Simulated scan of single mutants.
Amino acid sequence: MSPDAKPTDFSATRIHETVQQILTAGVLPAIVQAGHPVLRQLAAPYDGQLSDAELGQLIDLMRSVMHKAPGVGLAAPQLGIPLQLAVLEDQFEVDPEVAAVRGREPLPFFAMLNPAYAALGGSSVAFYEGCLSVNGLQAAVVRPEAVRLDFTAPDGSVQQREFSGWQARIVQHETDHVHGILYLDRAELRSISSNAEYSARWAQPDISRARQELGFLPGG
């Protein structure tokens, strides 16, 4: 949780009403962008604000929004819903060299409620990240290379899983969202690049060239 993130003031009823409005709109909702207060709040822990059917419908909708974007994760606050729920999936085809350097392997779809993570081991790695709620930018973020994730599955079972490489990065990014944290909070500010500049200059498998030329993480 961010020390600056205040708990949402949405009641369970208001959360339910917000979800119903989105589910019955008949169109995929827009992704909330940075500057919206919901992205800076500690989302409400899930404790039955929705029926099982509504939760399933919301998860399906979030998966559709994530695919359309396209992205590898989406948290409920990114749809204006201050609820500790996120969906994750990475099935993109990636250049083998990039995948090897970044430890990127396919991540089968799953949804997580009330997630929390802890670093495993002392190894950290830095790579460029983007965010569907921060259009047009990329930045390098140092994150633990492996994490243990504690969460509740949609069926109510309490689960614990371990992730490493790019999967661990996705897990951390989406968990941060429900705690009011954007990846820019953890980013190396000198690394921030527009999507166009990133694609033109820094889209190598690692960040070594960007680090040297932009002057961040000196000595890394």
Rank of each mutant, 00 (worst) to 15 (best):
A140N: 05
I181W: 07
A43H: 08
M66E: 09
I192R: 00
R63G: 06
Y117I: 10
D4V: 01
H67I: 00
L42S: 15
A99R: 09
F10A: 12
T8G: 06
L184M: 00
L79Q: 10
T24F: 14
G165K: 02
L182T: 06
A5D: 13
I15W: 03
A99C: 10
L79R: 05
Y198V: 03
T8I: 02
Q78Y: 08
S133Y: 02
Q84H: 03
A30C: 08
A75D: 05
T152Y: 12
P82S: 11
D176W: 08
T24L: 14
G35C: 08
F163D: 04
L137S: 13
V101M: 00
R211E: 12
A43T: 14
I192K: 03
L50V: 05
Q167K: 09
Y128G: 01
Q84M: 02
V125S: 10
T13Q: 14
G122D: 15
G80F: 09
V142R: 14
G180C: 13
P77C: 07
L214D: 05
W202T: 00
Y183S: 01
G48K: 05
H173T: 09
A75C: 06
F216N: 04
A196Q: 15
S193L: 08
Q49G: 05
V125Y: 01
L28H: 08
G73Q: 01
Q21I: 02
N114A: 01
A34K: 15
H179P: 02
T175Q: 05
Y198P: 02
L79W: 12
L137A: 14
A196L: 12
G121F: 05
L55G: 07
V19Y: 09
P3G: 11
S194F: 11
V142W: 07
I170V: 10
S194P: 12
G165Y: 05
P218V: 14
V65Q: 10
S124E: 08
S194A: 15
D185G: 08
I22E: 10
A75P: 04
A168N: 08
A168K: 13
V147S: 10
L28M: 03
A168D: 06
I81C: 07
E213A: 07
L50A: 09
H177V: 06
Q84T: 03
H179I: 00
Y183F: 14
F109Y: 08
M62V: 04
P37I: 06
G103Y: 03
P29Y: 12
A99L: 09
V72A: 12
A168T: 06
G215H: 04
L189E: 13
P3C: 11
S64T: 11
I81M: 09
G180P: 06
L107Y: 10
